[in-house]
Design a protein around this nucleic acid. Structure first.
Length: 872
RNA sequence: GCCCCGGUGGCGGAAUCGGUAGACGCAACGGACUUAAAAUCCGUUGACCGUGAGGUCGUGCCGGUUCGAGUCCGGCCCGGGGCACCA
């Protein structure tokens, strides 16, 4: 064994061993308990970032731990390879997205391998491979047959200069990112997946997901947003009837049917048919409608923008009183959500209150406060106005509580054919059409004679041409004759191929199934999926808590209903890892954009007026910069740390140890160069300790009966540490405290300095436990240390040991003594001491006597083996 | 704006079920070793009072429950994630 710790050589040796012995190739074996450990696959952006290292280290620790516990472990890896960044890179560099993506995959795969992850690379998949995405297409056609995939119009961001659809990310302050043109909303036909059909089940099944963080389940439940309420029809007034040339009713959904008699206006979306008809004869209203249709499609923008409205001059009639209610167009009502219309009850809804006050609309109180918080509704708004109470001024429905009022009103509405009770979800159907090149083609053909024709299964996949280079002006597929022009599968006449591609969330909604059978060219899934699913542990960023995880759950349920898989939930346990943060520094030049400086190039100087931050530029000149706090590592803020440099300088084990030690996995993690060095030093200290122990010659056999008290104490610490690490990794998933416990143990071994034969035997056992306990986290160095400790077997194939109960036993415990809840002393009592004995020992303690004085304790609280509190 | 999470020494964090606040690590300071530096090793380090023994205060802010609150409850402040075409 070398005296010096040389990570490069050690890691080469360990990885060579695992590769040669195919240690991580997983085979289905029904007799063995399987453990499917899945980390969210990366987008191949070019290089690994620290978030990836953190994510995959967590997965690897759990995989290696489960493997040592005897489970049959599958840990696969692949590439979420379609998406916008490839098109952006193509526009910047003129490289085809396919080549850019595949080069990135090759590079990042090498980086992953250098980190020593226990991955079965035979199962690698990339979503841009036709062998993968053909099954997107195949299942899309099955969903279309089942009515789950259907067509309707949807709203997109439209750049009028580039004549192209923009992603939300490409809209900067209401303008196209390349052209600076004001973005417009535009309605186009799109394909949708009927996820709302599964809303009830997606919500209800959350209860069965015991291995999911509570906060993720709450977020999903709120996203699905089940609300019980009533649908109410407001019959058209004569003016609306005349305008539309038809009879009917304006439908709304409300959770507050009890306030129906407080309706003083109706608000409809700018895209609502009534609004469009009204706009056609009123140029000023049309101008307002046009204004509403500019601007953002994002909910956050809609929610924070100034609430504006304009009267249409049209009326609907109250369903009970028949009174006319004026209809307004409002920018805060969205056509895509609910009915595109809401009833306005200013007295009992904060937003309606603001709208009414601003526009001079009357406010009619119809609920009396149950708590007496108000007698009349007057400005300013107070929260109590929105609370449930007892109805007033509501005709025959007055004097009812919330539930009775809603029930009675809904019943009466139903009798008149103007409404009913209904359950509404906030969740909307999933629009999957994208007018973009680098994605999975939607397998449809448009024929003048036959209409929309699905591509027959025998002709799948519809292969995406890989030689196109987007230029920012629309989808290149639409301009490629070779792709676009085809024969109609039904009649054979010339036809046009669909040029929309699928949302990349489709690709990631089922990749975890494909790992089980990646080599099957004849079917999407097979028997092996039944063996591996569900995923036993899923690990990924908290930013995916809603969309990706909800879509995957939905997709799995659809496949279950199509009899393709046996499970209805894909992920049994979920760990949501926090983000990796670093400091942000910038400087604002006289003209142009902020310049961001990498924290590596910034020195912190302590001056009279506090701290100064000085950056050193490439040309060696220095410049004072602004410190802007911590933020996620990103290219735009120039605060990323390249894992490659870290691995080259310190080795993969140090990178892994730092990631696991610095913060618990669910919390955000702050980058620290000093912390990395500390992790490196710890490994080196471990290496040196084992080296010195081994260099002193073989340790004798451990004779438990012959140990001195200090030796017994050290051995107890060894087995306590083992128990703690097992619990921390296996149950609590707090790797940082597991590592801290091992550090403490290593410190204790160092302090013992016991060169006697049994002292060395205890130390030997201790080093073995340290090596095993750390091996999931720093597997390379432990692989080599295990051999140095005299083993001919490979550590990766060892079983995780159990603590020796005999070693854990102790005959006395130290209990803390408090007087009136304040710590005053400690007493040592036998483990089996009774309450009386503990009480006596506590009262006899010197400082307790001092604080109790002559007083008689009023109460003595005893927490077994921990604490005594004397209350006087 | 709405939903979710977090806030503990100079810093990252620990305290697992309401029971010793600050484990472990970093940084800093002092010392040993060295011609010197690096590396390594030893020691100190929440604040305040005290020579000391010891005491008082202390987990974003205000209030509450409890023998006992970082932990539970109510109200705020600040930071982060998500909001449906970034992945």
């Amino acid at each position: 064994m070398d005296e010096r710790y040389e990570p490069a050589a050690i890691e080469r040796a360990a990885q060579g061993f695992w590769n040669q012995h195919r240690s991580f190739e997983a085979a289905e074996d029904p007799k063995r308990d399987k453990f499917y450990c899945l980390s969210m696959f990366p987008y191949p952006s070019g290089r690994l970032h620290m978030g990836h290292v953190r994510n995959y280290t967590i997965g690897d620790v759990l995989s290696r731990f489960a493997r040592m516990q005897g489970r049959n472990v599958l840990q696969p890896m692949g590439w979420d390879a379609f998406g916008l960044p490839a098109e952006n890179a193509a526009m910047q560099n003129g490289v085809a997205p396919a080549k850019w993506t595949r080069d990135n995959i090759a590079y990042m795969k090498k980086q992953l391998q250098a980190l020593g992850f226990a991955i079965d690379w035979r199962r690698e998949i990339a979503t841009c491979d036709p062998a993968y995405y053909r099954w997107n297409q195949w299942l899309f056609l099955r969903m279309r047959e089942a009515g789950i995939a259907y067509k309707k119009t949807g709203v997109v961001n439209w750049d009028p200069v580039d004549q192209t659809v923009l992603a939300n990310e490409q809209v900067i302050e209401g303008r196209g990112w390349r052209t600076g043109a004001l973005v417009e909303k535009r309605e186009i036909p799109m394909y949708y997946l009927n996820i709302t059909k599964y809303a009830d089940e997606l919500l209800g099944d959350l209860d069965g997901l015991g291995g999911w963080p509570e906060r993720v389940k709450v977020m999903q439940a709120n996203w699905i947003g089940r609300s019980e309420g009533a649908e109410v029809g407001f019959p058209y007034g004569d003016d609306v009837r005349a305008l539309l040339g038809a009879d009917g009713a304006l439908k709304v959904f409300t959770t507050r049917a009890d306030t129906l008699f407080g309706v003083t206006f109706m608000a409809i979306a700018a895209e609502h048919p009534v609004a469009l008809a009204a706009g056609a004869r009123d140029p000023q209203l049309q101008a307002f409608i046009d204004e509403c249709r500019r601007g953002s499609t994002m909910e956050a923008d809609v929610a924070t923008m100034e609430k504006k409205g304009r009267r249409t001059g049209l009326h609907v009639r109250h369903p009970f009183t028949g009174e006319p209610v004026e209809v307004w167009v409002a920018n805060y009502v969205l056509m895509g959500y609910g009915e595109g219309a809401v009833m306005g009850v200013p007295a009992h809804d904060e937003r309606d209150f603001a709208f009414a006050t601003q526009n001079g609309i009357p406010i009619r109180m119809v609920v009396r406060s149950a708590s007496g918080a108000y007698d009349e509704v007057v400005a300013p708004w107070i929260e109590a106005y929105g609370e449930h109470g007892v109805t007033v001024n509501s005709g025959e429905f007055s004097g009812l509580g919330y539930r009775e009022a809603v029930d009675a009103i809904a019943k009466a509405l139903e009798a008149r054919g103007l409404g009913r009770k209904r359950i509404q979800f906030r969740l909307r159907d999933w629009g999957i059409s994208r007018q973009r090149y680098w994605g999975c083609p939607i397998p449809l053909v448009h024929c003048e004679a036959c209409g929309e024709v699905p591509v027959p299964d025998s002709q799948l996949p519809v292969v995406l041409p890989e030689d196109l280079v987007p230029d920012g002006s629309g989808n290149p597929l639409a301009k490629s004759a070779a792709f676009r022009d085809c024969a109609c599968p039904a009649c054979g006449k010339p036809a046009r191929r669909e040029t929309d591609t699928m949302d990349t969330f489709v690709d990631s909604s089922w990749y975890f199934l494909r790992y089980a059978c990646a080599d099957n060219g004849g079917a999407m899934v097979d028997e092996r999926v039944k063996y591996w699913l569900p995923v036993d542990q899923y690990i990924g960023g908290i930013e995916h808590a809603i969309l990706h995880l909800l879509y995957s759950r939905f997709w799995t349920k659809v496949m279950r209903d199509l009899k393709l898989v046996g499970v209805g939930e894909p992920f049994a346990n979920l760990l949501t890892q926090g983000m990796v943060l670093n400091h942000i520094y910038w400087q604002q030049p006289a003209e142009g954009r902020r310049l961001y400086f990498n924290p590596n190039d910034v020195d912190v100087e302590e001056g009279d007026g506090g701290k100064r931050y000085v950056a050193t530029r490439d040309d060696g000149t220095r410049l004072e910069v602004v410190y802007d706090g911590l933020g996620t590592m990103s290219k735009s803020k120039n605060n990323g740390v390249d894992p490659q440099g870290l691995v080259e300088k310190y080795g993969a084990d140090t990178a892994r140890l730092f990631m696991m030690f610095t913060a618990p996995p669910e919390q955000s993690l702050e980058w620290s160069d000093e912390g990395v060095q500390g992790s490196f030093r710890f490994i080196r200290r471990l290496w040196k300790a084992v080296h010195d122990h081994v260099a002193a010659g073989p340790a004798p056999r451990l004779d438990v009966a012959a140990l001195t008290p200090p030796q017994r104490a050290l051995r107890r610490a060894v087995h306590q540490t083992l128990a703690k690490v097992t619990d921390d990794i296996g149950r609590r998933r707090t790797f940082n405290t597991a590592i801290a416990a091992v550090m403490e143990l290593l410190n204790a071994i160092g302090r013992s300095e016991d060169g006697s034969p049994q002292g060395r035997a205890v130390a030997h056992e201790a080093f073995e436990v340290v090596t095993v306990a750390l091996s999931p986290i720093v597997p390379h160095v432990c692989h080599v240390l295990w051999q140095a400790l005299g083993h001919s077997t490979a550590l990766v194939d060892e079983r995780w040991p159990s603590p020796d109960p005999a070693a854990l036993a102790q005959d006395s415990v130290t209990m803390v003594v408090q007087v009136n809840g304040k710590l005053r002393g400690q007493v040592s009592v036998p483990v089996d001491a009774g309450e009386e004995a503990i009480r006596a020992a506590a009262l006899a303690e010197e400082s307790v006597q001092r604080f109790v004085g002559g007083a008689t304790p009023r109460k003595i609280v005893i927490v077994p083996r921990k604490l005594v509190n004397v209350v006087v």
